[in-house]
Design a binder for these strands. Structure first.
Length: 358
DNA sequence: TAGCCGTGGGA
DNA sequence: TTCCCAAGGCT
């Protein structure tokens, strides 16, 4: 059995669980967060384009970070057709600083597929086939924008459900169980409001560290609350330490311009403009991989950056470009307009340091 | 399937 | 400082 305890206590728990959707929806009707991409509970659903756009932007990204960028992106491309017609480069540029840049590439590809089809598919399976739309996003759009019943499981729902049932099985192995349990508490009607309510609950009450159980509409019947340590759920495996890598970023000037490179289309920071760097390895590479033979000068200090799975420390080297020996496809960018290059954060910070140096 | 893929903020 | 975390998807 999934629920700890025995006898009448377990029966009471099951009875309480049966009322989860009603209690959650009632709570959502009173406490729904007002968000730029959301239509309030009880009003017609939001435009699928806005729902899709917000869901992609919100993947692994906080509401606070997304809100201003969502407004900017929507103002620039008010429809999926407008976004589809934009050059990919413009989309990547607009995405600069948001991270996970494959999202921007998939966003553009998805917009083109949807525009060509004349609109968004209105089924979960149809949505799931679009680039950048996985299980979560397909279920979210199907329920929120199209009113369909779908089982929506994001990190918030995962946490709420793991606590509700005090699941002892650690992630990620517990995911199939969590999905099954979420299915059992998802209502046939208002599945979109239910999903958004669960996410709001997870974001504001059933938080990762110190859940505010006193305010929770699902406290009664919550096995995690009953256990006395709800924050222990979901159980997670120990995390591996991040390796440290070292590299050098090069600031090569020619007059008032600086050399940029286009990174390979896929992989880390794929397709973005960047400063040239040598190899990133576990030993300081010095001037290895410099874009030209020149009188390089090392700046004091470094730029540190943390990626998902490693830390990077970049030394900073600068020089004036020689008159020859440079790749013909070199990108020379006006140095005092480097902020407009759409550099990812790591290189934007390095560039700021170089510009302070002069 | 588990590793890859950013960034900023909070404790 | 360090660690954790945030509306995941792709391969």
């Amino acid at each position: 059995m999934l629920v700890d305890g025995a006898g009448s206590a377990e029966a009471a728990m099951r009875a309480a669980t049966a009322t989860v959707p009603q209690r959650l929806l009632a709570w959502y009707d009173r406490h729904a967060r007002r968000l730029p991409w959301r239509s309030p509970p009880g009003t017609p659903p939001a435009d699928p384009y806005r729902v899709w756009l917000s869901e992609v932007m919100l993947q692994q990204t906080t509401v606070a970070a997304v809100a201003p960028r969502f407004a900017r992106l929507l103002a620039r491309w008010p429809s999926v057709a407008a976004l589809a017609a934009a050059p990919l480069d413009d989309v990547l540029h607009e995405w600069a600083g948001l991270g996970y840049y494959a999202r921007a590439r998939n966003l553009h590809a998805c917009a083109q597929a949807v525009a060509a089809a004349g609109g968004f598919p209105d089924t979960e399976a149809g949505l799931r086939a679009l680039p950048g739309v996985g299980d979560y996003t397909a279920a979210a759009i199907a329920s929120i924008a199209f009113g369909r019943r779908a089982v929506v499981v994001d990190g918030n729902v995962e946490r709420v459900v793991a606590r509700l049932f005090a699941l002892e099985q650690p992630l990620p192995g517990a995911r199939p169980t969590i999905r099954r349990l979420t299915d059992t508490i998802t209502p046939d009607l208002r599945a979109g409001d239910f999903a958004q309510g669960m996410m709001d609950l997870g974001a504001t009450i059933c938080t990762p560290r110190a859940p505010a159980c006193a305010l929770c509409p699902l406290r009664e019947g919550c096995a995690g609350f009953a256990s006395g340590r709800p924050e222990a759920y979901p159980v997670k495996p120990p995390r591996a330490a991040k390796p440290q890598r070292l590299g050098t970023a090069f600031w090569l000037t020619r007059g008032d311009k600086v050399l940029l490179v286009r990174r390979p289309a896929k992989g880390l920071l794929g397709g973005l403009l960047a400063l040239p760097t040598g190899p990133w390895s576990d030993a300081a590479p010095g001037l290895d991989g410099a874009p030209a033979a020149a009188r390089w000068r090392l700046l004091d200090g470094t730029v540190q950056h943390v990626f998902t799975h490693f830390r990077l420390t970049l030394a900073l080297a600068t020089a004036a470009a020689p008159s020859d020996g440079l790749a013909p496809d070199a990108i020379w960018w006006q140095a005092d307009r480097i902020d407009e290059a759409g550099l990812p954060t790591l290189f934007a910070r390095a560039a700021a340091r170089f510009r302070e140096d002069t």
